[in-house]
Design a protein around this nucleic acid. Sequence first.
DNA 1: AACTAATCGAGACGGTACGTCAGGTCTTCTG
DNA 2: CAGAAGACCTGACGTACCGTCTCGATTAGTT
Lengths: 208, 208, 208, 208
Amino acid sequence: MPPAKKSPAPAAPARPNSARRSEASRRAILTAAFELAGELGYAKLSIEAIAARAGVGKQTIYRWWPTKGAVLFDAFLMLSEGPDGDAELPDTGDIEADLKTVLRATVEELADPRIAEPMRALSTEIAHDPQLAALYAERLDEPVRELKRARLRKAQQAGQLAADLDLDVAVDAIWGPLLNRWLLRTGPVTTAYTDAVVETALRGLRAS
Amino acid sequence: MPPAKKSPAPAAPARPNSARRSEASRRAILTAAFELAGELGYAKLSIEAIAARAGVGKQTIYRWWPTKGAVLFDAFLMLSEGPDGDAELPDTGDIEADLKTVLRATVEELADPRIAEPMRALSTEIAHDPQLAALYAERLDEPVRELKRARLRKAQQAGQLAADLDLDVAVDAIWGPLLNRWLLRTGPVTTAYTDAVVETALRGLRAS
Amino acid sequence: MPPAKKSPAPAAPARPNSARRSEASRRAILTAAFELAGELGYAKLSIEAIAARAGVGKQTIYRWWPTKGAVLFDAFLMLSEGPDGDAELPDTGDIEADLKTVLRATVEELADPRIAEPMRALSTEIAHDPQLAALYAERLDEPVRELKRARLRKAQQAGQLAADLDLDVAVDAIWGPLLNRWLLRTGPVTTAYTDAVVETALRGLRAS
Amino acid sequence: MPPAKKSPAPAAPARPNSARRSEASRRAILTAAFELAGELGYAKLSIEAIAARAGVGKQTIYRWWPTKGAVLFDAFLMLSEGPDGDAELPDTGDIEADLKTVLRATVEELADPRIAEPMRALSTEIAHDPQLAALYAERLDEPVRELKRARLRKAQQAGQLAADLDLDVAVDAIWGPLLNRWLLRTGPVTTAYTDAVVETALRGLRAS
DNA sequence: AACTAATCGAGACGGTACGTCAGGTCTTCTG
DNA sequence: CAGAAGACCTGACGTACCGTCTCGATTAGTT
């Protein structure tokens, strides 16, 4: 297996990224944006507040990001690039248990407003900005989705999942119900619920 | 004493609803709100614009609705109360075919910006306003969800679905993936996709 | 010719002046503008500062005045309409003494920054805005100029001034040197200077 | 004794003026400043615009001039040092005719926005900046004023003007009314007006 | 001829103010 | 007397410049 550990640079380019750009300001802005989204909620998240919290001129934000959503997006990107490396979903050999574990962790995250509120804010922006949505799909959703697919693929190869399963559909079958319930608040987001979702998705609705 | 003919159905009061209230203004406001959400998108949907389009003073909106989201909510409520009665989901006896039919219809609706944009707008407001979310869950989601449950229940009683199935989880398993994909734009919303979702949900992920 | 004593109302119209307009805000704005011009000087006179000092929204200023200069102009107008009535220049019968008296009073005013600074500010705006200049000429300069002409006319009728004198030119001959020296600071503005100006203007440069 | 041929005239140093300084940039800046003042008017005259027009970095301006007014001042200084040498006011022996000639030329200059607008801009800066005013008085006004005094002195010596005349007051009596009327736009600036001013100033206001 | 230090064009930075838009409250006038 | 009209204060928007501060790249004048 080739070494190729880590990828030399392309980690965070995305934007023109002039050599003159202040990395300190960039991090301060992204951190402030994430924090404020968590503290004030989406409604009161303003560029002015981000600039003030970050100790930065407004123009410095407008110079590098086209919209408030793009800032938030980069904030998530920055966080997601911290402790990743090549993380993997747990694999104990029991796909049902593993999926339950992962979803339970997600439920816990969503219970923390400091994480959930920024996620709601970003989700909202995505819902209304197709361009941002494309970026999101490519840079945030896809990497995570690949991890999910990978775990399912292993179960599939172990003969635990149907051989002809469309893994993208399978991922949606597991995570879609949870995310939809969480975002639209159509019901409580509990581990009992996610356990039921996993069981139901694996077994299918039909009478056996 | 007059028979009080007007409102036998407390379906839509919710708010004080003074006798003096102008029904014409109310309808104009709700119609304007829905149209503007469809035309301008969520970003440019302002109370001022709604008031202007409806030919109404701003105060008339603030008098009767607490937030922009509440207006939008009532606009959906008004629409949903038009041709409802006690509609039902189709029942040909083939639960898989029926679910595919229903989801295909949804896909079509979501392709129409005049419907999809207001829905995105409302979804956004719900995502950020728990109170509105509760209203939504009770007054808009629940009635529709009951129709869905009813259809699934019939299939269950016909022995097509598992006897111990949690129907709420089942509803989420069918509609959750679609709504999540649509709202977050993590992939194209097509009938091919919804067909696959229905098949997968019914059959389950496991190898048979 | 009927008495027509002065025009019944036009005290402060000038602008559309809706009936809804808040007189309190108007006065607060004009007062704040005048004071700030005196305290901070022209450079730091900003609409934002005026609004803040007046306890008023910026929009309330922009709603009623097109430019900063127009605010300043109205501030002067307000002041000039306070204690005027039909003031007159002093008339002791000695035109030279009277003119010296008047100019000495002007010198004193110009020595007070609270008066001189706003005047410099207004002068600047006038110098760069022909429209404002026209307003100034008509509503602020002309009334005062008429007082000056009136005094000179009396002296003329008393045979103290040349019968064929162009009174407008005469006014400029008296007040022009002073104002020019003051505004462009080409020399100290003292009563000795104004006395000399009056003497020279009356006597003429020529050898007798 | 060394030749020291370089600077016999300390006419224009004023500033440190390092040997390293780029003369090309200096001229480009002053020219751009003057042109922009004429084209855009005072309001839109910004250091950024000057730098852009001159093809120069902003710092190059800030390095050598303390304020925008100082740049404008030097621009005038540069122009005034071109075709001067030891110019003189015309002397035909007829002081009245000569003064009228000079003022008519001034009227013409003031009619050209490319000259008048920068002058208004500079005048404005002077009005609000005592330091700049002192420079102006010394380096731009005084040399011209000396020419004026010189012409009047000759007339005085020829017995045409009063022997005890204060020449500075006399200069103000001739030029003050014109400049004041021009800057504050209290009336049209015409040759008819300047002729009248000259006649009135020479003859005096008094009845003969 | 190589060094070196000031100056140059460029432009990012933290800020202030601009003039506009909308939010939500309050007041006035009209049907 | 409810409702349209809209003025009001507030606060955020996105832009223009401010004056300061790096960045390499010239470009003198030493060495």
